[in-house]
Amino acid sequence: MAVPKKRTSMSKKYIRRNLWIKKGYLLAVKSFSLAKSVSTGQSKSFFVTQKKYCKKFN
């Protein structure tokens, strides 16, 4: 027969929530930093070839 579990305290709930939010924030900062370094051409881990666009007039 199923038995109800004990209630998790509010402080433990907030600790887990803050860890979850912090993990997402750190990933966002890291990915933004990588995108910025790739766009400025200072990335050492990615080799991106820049395409130059030229307009053809008819």
Rank of each mutant, 00 (worst) to 15 (best):
M10V: 14
F57Q: 14
V48C: 06
F57R: 14
M10Q: 15
K52R: 13
K12T: 12
Y53V: 12
W20Q: 13
R17Q: 06
A2H: 07
V48H: 03
L26F: 02
T49M: 07
K13H: 05
V38G: 01
V48T: 06
A35I: 03
Q50N: 13
K55L: 14
M10N: 10
Y53K: 09
R7H: 04
S11D: 04
I15D: 05
Q42K: 15
Y14A: 12
I21V: 15
Q42H: 11
F47E: 12
N58S: 10
L34M: 10
S33G: 12
S43T: 01
S9F: 00
V29G: 03
L26T: 03
T8A: 15
V29N: 03
K6G: 11
K36L: 11
Y14M: 15
V38Y: 01
K6L: 14
K52M: 06
L27W: 03
K56R: 07
L27D: 04
P4Y: 00
W20L: 11
K6P: 01
M10W: 10
K44C: 05
K56D: 06
N58Y: 06
S43C: 04
F32S: 09
R7C: 03
K44T: 13
S9I: 00
K56L: 07
K52W: 02
R7M: 06
K44G: 05
N58F: 08
Y25I: 15
L19F: 06
K36M: 06
V3E: 00
Y14V: 15
K22P: 02
T49F: 09
K22M: 14
R16S: 11
L34I: 12
K5S: 10
K30H: 08
K51R: 13
G41C: 00
N58Q: 13
V29T: 11
I15G: 02
N58K: 10
F57G: 08
S45F: 05
W20V: 15
S11V: 15
M10I: 13
N18I: 03
K56M: 04
K51E: 11
S11W: 03
A2V: 15
L34E: 11
Q42W: 08
K12D: 12
F46Q: 12
S31T: 14
F47K: 14
M1K: 07
F57C: 09
A28C: 07
S33E: 11
K22A: 15
W20A: 14
F57H: 12
S39P: 00
N18Y: 02
K51F: 08
V38Q: 00
R16Y: 00
S43L: 01
F47D: 09
A35P: 01
N18Q: 07
Y14E: 07
P4I: 03
